[in-house]
């Protein structure tokens, strides 16, 4: 612990990242370049999110880390342990108890509050990247609000698949201005982005930070005759029975058996806990 500065990064770096975060909050959806540092993990494992989290943490914080909604996956466990060690920070798996939540590709099912920060790990911050490969050109397109191309992608989806087939990293427009990649969250989560918590996005390899202040207007792009739809797998969770959550498909045997379970493990555990007393009463009766 004493071998590292608090929260791993040196104070100058944290200050630089905080400046980028403040600028991002001042211009919602705008990608702020920052001098991303090497972190003790490979690119693509959340280096951007980790740097943003490190710059936000102080010892009184309680950190929650999720990977695709789950608290117990390798990536989530590693990052949580990392901050326990270098930032001396309390950790939790309960969404409601956390002050900072670092997430990879999900928004928790529980509604977040004004005193929470949600940090996203972002692989590719530029929503126009696969449509226009030149960064010089995409930055100009953002500056001049030339966003016709984004709809070309949705047009192609409909013409090939009969519907908007983009299911994750679904492009959104922020306060009628910047088009933003919400990181690869399922489009089921898009409507949740208008939330009371602060949302910070960190892309380590691409060296970009962007942010959404609380209650920012977030509109998912669509066509008048093909409106946006927050889709999920049909059915309810096989464990807790919730039918309003985003579901993961789990293969259970080699014979094609499968089940759908909540991707948010904490929410699923809460639902099960809430059901337990009733089921015990049932057994008693």
């Amino acid at each position: 612990m004493s071998d590292y500065n608090y929260a791993y990064l040196d104070e100058q770096t944290k200050r630089m990242i905080r400046r980028a975060i403040l600028k991002g909050l001042a211009i919602p959806g705008y990608q702020v370049p920052f001098a991303s540092r090497e972190m003790p993990m490979p690119y693509g494992w959340g280096t951007g999110g980790v740097q943003v989290t490190a710059s936000c943490l102080h010892p009184q914080d309680r950190l929650k880390v999720i990977d695709q909604g789950a608290d117990d996956t390798t990536n989530a466990v590693s990052i949580r342990k990392f901050f326990q060690r270098v930032a001396d920070v309390g950790v939790t798996e309960h969404t409601g108890d956390a002050t900072v939540i670092q997430t990879r590709h999900r928004i928790p099912e529980d509604e977040l509050t004004e005193d929470q920060i949600l940090v996203y790990q972002v692989p590719i911050p530029e929503p126009l990247r696969f449509l226009e490969p030149r960064e010089t050109e995409t930055r100009k397109m953002h500056a001049l609000e030339e966003y016709g191309l984004m709809h070309v992608k949705l047009y192609e989806d409909i013409s090939q698949h009969g519907q908007i087939a983009t299911a994750y990293a679904y492009p959104v427009q922020i306060e009628g201005r910047y088009i933003m990649d919400p990181s690869p969250i399922p489009k089921f989560d898009n409507p949740k982005m208008e939330m009371p918590a602060i949302q910070l996005f960190g892309a380590g390899r691409e060296q970009r930070i962007y942010a959404l202040p609380p209650y920012t207007k977030v509109v998912s792009l669509d066509f008048d005759d093909y409106p946006f739809e927050a889709s999920k797998a049909p059915g309810a969770c096989a464990i807790c029975g919730a039918d309003n959550t985003y579901l993961d498909e789990v293969i259970v045997d080699d014979a094609g058996g499968r089940m759908f379970v909540c991707s948010d493990t904490d929410y699923c555990a809460q639902c099960q806990a809430a059901q337990k007393p009733t089921s015990q009463e049932g057994e008693a009766a």
Binding site: G148, L149, H151, V152, Y155, E156, S159, Q160, D224, D225
Partner: peptide, 25 residues
């Protein structure tokens, strides 16, 4: 745009000036 269908190529300018109705495009 070689990676985009003929319809998308023709529609791009329409969408760039604000067309948002798939059927009409």
């Amino acid at each position: 745009r070689m990676g985009v269908s003929a319809g998308g190529n023709v529609g791009e300018r329409l969408m760039a000036v604000g067309a948002r109705h798939y059927g009409e495009i």
